[in-house]
Amino acid sequence: MATMEALDDEILAIRAQIASLHAHRANLGSILLSSPNLPTRLEHRPVAKEGLRKKAAKIVKTQSNRNHENIYRACAGVTAYKVKDPDPNAVDNGNVLGVRIEVAVGGKFVDTYHVLLNRPYPTRKTVLKIHKHTIPPCIPLQQLATRFLPAPQKDAVTPTEQDLLKFGRCLRKELVAWHLRTNAVVKLRAEAGLPDEKDTRDVEMEKNPYGTVLNAFAGDSDEDSEDDGIDKTPPGPPRITDIGANTGVSEINFAWSNGQTGTMNVTKDGRIEKAVVRSKQGAHLVELSRRATGRIEGLVERLAS
């Protein structure tokens, strides 16, 4: 048995090594292809076959295109591109303008969102309309669109004014703010010593196969201390047992081991505006609530002090 396991481990280690070497090779390859003198040298050096030269030039071109694109995307944050709709019945011959919004948090690339616009109004050629998008529903896209990309009025005399630049800027602000808030909640959980929510999801599903019942009032809601089998009133200050937020992170919920619960309203720029903390008996804990208001960062610290 032991040899089997040893062999398995070895295979795993070798696989990991292969993967890392592959990644290394790809990395080196792209560095080589991005070297500035390569295209000129390719053109001037003699080669055995002309076809190979063309092939090499093509690979170099792909790489330089990618470099270009990535630098634009990383630096600008909002970039536009053209798309051709393959639908034969598409409006405006299938010409679609794409707006790409990059979100990076903490120096790391997180996600890309797209808004695709077309020109459906035959009489007003410059008026855009959102055709498709990949913006999650917790972002107020409709409101932004009505403000910056209004549809033309039927018999209006004045031409419709649209501002795609401002639209992109505001939408990007919303998206980045949302990601920052989500990140802040993850950090709060880490500060409170709670495991990452993603890791606990499966365990939770096993523990509560049908979810957390929200209207079971008669029973003791102090689940955690019971599940863990700990005494009802643990000595020392109450610890935070749960931190959660809704999808749009406009609201954060706290639970303490002594049955206290708190709900906080979060503004879009990550300020805690209003907070209510109640004891298990339902009394309003004014002091804690007051302490909670402020920036979202350091919330756990403020509550503990």
Binding site: G29, L33, S34, I59, Q63, N70, D85, R100, H114, I135
Partner: peptide, 25 residues
């Protein structure tokens, strides 16, 4: 939600890779 059919490439990573991913080879 609003990127069905052929537009599904915009919702996943097949169209827009990580902006720091420079590897084409």
């Amino acid at each position: 939600n609003a990127s069905g059919g052929g537009y599904s490439i915009f919702a996943d990573t097949s169209f827009s890779q990580n902006a720091f991913d420079f590897i084409t080879t």
